[in-house]
Design a protein around this nucleic acid. Structure first.
Lengths: 341, 341
DNA sequence: GGATTTAGCCCAATCGTTTAGGCACGCCCT
DNA sequence: AGGGCGTGCCTAAACGATTGGGCTAAATCC
């Protein structure tokens, strides 16, 4: 029903030309139009329920006000939602729209999809990855505004946003230090990715800041899931002089550490304090006691990427910022003072 | 660089009119064109790296080949990813694109967003909800192709796809019955939603099919999170004649049941078998032992919705199917035979 | 009073396609 | 020789907006 009301219909009803309608409706500055005419046009538009045709406008303006979020497998991870949501909200705040494409990790498919989006005159791209890592940006994105999300490329031509892993590692460790712990284990993961290195660095820095020596027996690497956490937990808690607290690479590993503690009859947080990373609510909220952890700024990264991208497109700015966003602590119940000797 | 190659450039290079280029490139049937010309056009297009301008085409054809997925808060839930992914893959299989909009639950915002999408000439909508429920479809969607996902409306004008909760409930229960259990508890949730009713129905049906009487002391309702599961678990396991198995409304509750079992020193699956629902991998894979559960067909629902919607748009079909998709079992390690008396 | 300015609007081109409806040429037939 | 019919291509009108450059009348200036 709302169908087929074009600017021509509005012009006709208001008794003016389409030019005038366009000028009025877009509030084009510097155009001299009688205020009577203005209201007549507005009324006509309202009465007819006129909605400008975005496709026609895009064609004429050579700008679609559409952004595309392309990702490897992001939509399959639990983090994805927040990134997408942050991006979508930001886009909508600017009056832009967001398209979504997932390559499933296949570079060829990815290229095809990006081409399809470019044909649709998408104005800019957000290239996002499932977890923080280095990427080679696809060639097809070379000459179109693009920002990287949770990803980093050597190429300084792209703005990028990633979590500040080092700061996150420090935050997590600091929580334990401030609770009074002096022997703090790190259940690390085995992959060589920025998150691993960054969080470990943060752990070391914070130990140092607290006047503690780094002891590599307290750093145990395993796979970054609950099974790995279990394994790392068993190893750490099996030490002759066991740690009173464990910082876990992520919440899944923390879940495993809980299990290892339970096997040994250790109670959290009374006998052992635990801090996770990621703030996966499903886990962190579900564990007993709730897991104190550090949240990744997914929502903020999504929003930052969109804001920056739109700015790059509209203001045609030339600097390409590369930021790290802080990871805030989320306190629940898994940290307490170390047990009395 | 790839900028600005229009059909006109191709026409010029091939020494023909744009009409001919269009005919050739689109393989318009019934057009008589010399095969020499055909190859010349194709070569010119290749050489110039011609990409048709989708916006112009949309304007002319009055069809954008773009679908929109609008949801209340879907993108924030862990399930979201799979729905979105299923939808996106299906769309891309058809050569369509997917836009994403999240209303955050605000009906006004939702209306605005939908209008914005309609202005952009989106061809159809998928209206999705965070969890299976009844909805009132927004007025603005009345006169545009729309299918409902994980949602159901009274209005028979909309096709819809939801999980078959009853079958899922039966499947979960059957796993326990077939393992030999005769006293099976149900840790139910407190909300009156289709999932609750359906899974409970399935539970009852399957008990009956197995020749067991329904005992309402074995059905305990609590909030649908780990805390609720803990509570329900404690109540069920505190019964004088305790169940040997518990079917949980969802995996989060199952997580709580694990905790309740641990408190009582009961070992899973040796002393107690547990089945969940949802197949939240973060939980189901992380628990020890792994949780046997029933998966929601999110990916399939996403794909089904897109396929159906495109069919509705292209073939202009008039029937509006309303399907329930089955929920497959995912076996892990939380079910065993009941303990010997 | 004639020239100039100004207010208020409109014409028509443009963005890049698709497509209905020609038009010219050569061939065959009578 | 003239008519009819394919073949192979092109012209031009959409689609629905935006916008540079008019144009007309009334108001103002000298």
């Amino acid at each position: 029903m709302t169908k087929k009301v074009s600017i021509k219909d509005v012009a006709e009803r208001a008794g003016v030309s389409t030019t005038t309608v366009s000028h009025v409706l877009n509030d084009v500055p510097g155009k001299r139009i009688n205020s009577d005419t203005r209201v007549r046009v507005r009324e006509a538009a309202d009465a007819l329920g006129y909605q400008p045709n975005g496709v026609a406008r895009s064609l004429r303006l050579q700008r679609s006000q559409i952004l595309a979020l392309v990702s490897d497998e992001i939509a399959t991870t639990p983090h994805a939602g927040k990134i997408i949501l942050g991006a979508q909200e930001a886009a909508s705040r600017h009056g832009w729209l967001l398209m979504l494409v997932n390559s499933g990790g296949d570079a060829h498919v990815e290229g095809q999809e990006i081409q399809a989006l470019r044909r649709r005159q998408v104005d800019g791209f957000i290239y996002a990855t499932m977890y923080h890592r280095e990427v080679a940006v696809p060639e097809v994105l070379r000459d179109v505004p693009t920002v990287l999300l949770d990803a980093r490329a050597d190429d300084p031509a792209y703005a990028s946003v990633v979590p500040d892993e080092v700061d996150g590692g420090r935050t997590a460790t600091r929580i334990l230090v401030e609770a009074g712990h002096r022997r703090i284990g790190f259940a690390c993961n085995v992959d060589d990715i920025p998150a691993t290195r960054g969080r470990l660095d943060g752990y070391r820095q914070e130990l140092e800041a607290g006047g503690m020596a780094y002891d590599d027996r307290l750093v145990v690497a395993a796979t970054s899931d609950a099974a790995g956490g279990r394994e790392a937990g068993r190893r750490l808690l099996g030490l002759e002089h066991r740690p009173t607290a464990i910082f876990c690479f992520n919440d899944r590993m923390a879940m495993g550490v809980y299990q290892a503690a339970a096997e040994l009859g250790l109670r959290i947080p009374h006998d052992l304090s635990v801090v996770g990373f990621d703030d996966q609510e499903l886990i962190a909220d579900g564990l007993l006691p709730g897991l104190t952890t550090v949240a990744l700024p997914h929502h903020e990264m999504g929003a930052w990427a969109v804001d920056t991208l739109i700015d790059q497109i509209e203001a045609d700015t030339t600097d390409r910022p590369r930021v790290r966003l802080l990871c805030p602590a989320v306190e629940r119940g898994s940290v307490a003072a170390p047990p009395a000797q």
